[in-house]
Amino acid sequence: MQLQLIRNATLKLAYGGATILVDPYFAPKHSLPSFTGRSQNPMVELPVAVEDILDGVELVIVSHLHTDHFDSVAKETMPKHWPLICQQGDESTIRQAGFTDVTPLAGEISWRGIRITRREGNHGTGAVLDKMGPVMGFTLEAEGEPSVYWAGDTVLYPPVLETIKAFEPDVIVTHSCGAMWDDTLIVMDAEQTVETAEVAPRATVIATHMEALDHATVSRDALRAHAASRRLSPERLLVPADGELLTLPAAR
Rank of each mutant, 00 (worst) to 15 (best):
H66K: 13
T19C: 13
A151W: 00
N122L: 09
G56Q: 06
S63C: 07
I6C: 08
R224D: 06
W82S: 09
H66S: 11
A179C: 09
S72T: 13
V218H: 07
I53Q: 00
E195T: 14
V60N: 07
V187E: 10
D101Q: 15
P240K: 04
V62N: 05
L65T: 11
V44G: 03
E141L: 11
H215Q: 13
A200G: 06
P42C: 10
G152N: 05
M210V: 10
L161S: 12
P79R: 10
V102H: 01
E145C: 09
G16D: 02
L46C: 08
L213D: 12
H175Y: 11
K29H: 03
E108D: 10
M78V: 14
C86V: 15
S39I: 01
E198P: 08
Q40T: 02
G144S: 11
Y25S: 13
R230A: 15
T184V: 13
R7I: 12
A227P: 07
Q192C: 02
V60Y: 06
A27S: 14
V44M: 04
A190Y: 00
T117I: 11
I61K: 04
H64T: 12
L46E: 06
D182W: 01
T154M: 02
T163G: 05
F70L: 11
V148H: 00
M78I: 15
A27M: 11
L237C: 10
P201D: 01
T10S: 13
P33Y: 01
D101N: 15
L46M: 06
C177T: 15
A127N: 06
D189S: 13
G243D: 06
E168L: 14
L13C: 15
K75Q: 14
D170H: 02
E76S: 15
I109H: 04
K80H: 15
G37P: 04
I116T: 05
S147A: 12
A166W: 07
T100P: 02
L246M: 04
A216N: 06
A207K: 05
V171F: 01
P146D: 03
M180S: 08
P42K: 04
S219P: 07
A74N: 02
Q4V: 10
D52G: 03
A241H: 12
K75L: 05
A49T: 10
I164Q: 02
D242E: 01
L129T: 11
V102C: 03
I206P: 01
T217W: 07
S39K: 03
G124W: 04
E120S: 15
R38W: 07
P234D: 03
A227I: 10
V239F: 03
T77V: 08
H226C: 07
A142K: 00
K165E: 10
A207H: 08
V160R: 08
G152H: 05
L223G: 14
T208E: 02
L21C: 11
L65K: 09
I114E: 05
Y149C: 11
L21K: 07
E211V: 15
D52Y: 05
T247Q: 00
H123T: 09
R7E: 07
H66Y: 09
A228T: 13
H81N: 13
A151Y: 01
A251P: 01
D130I: 06
D182E: 10
P33D: 10
G56Y: 07
K131T: 14
T193E: 09
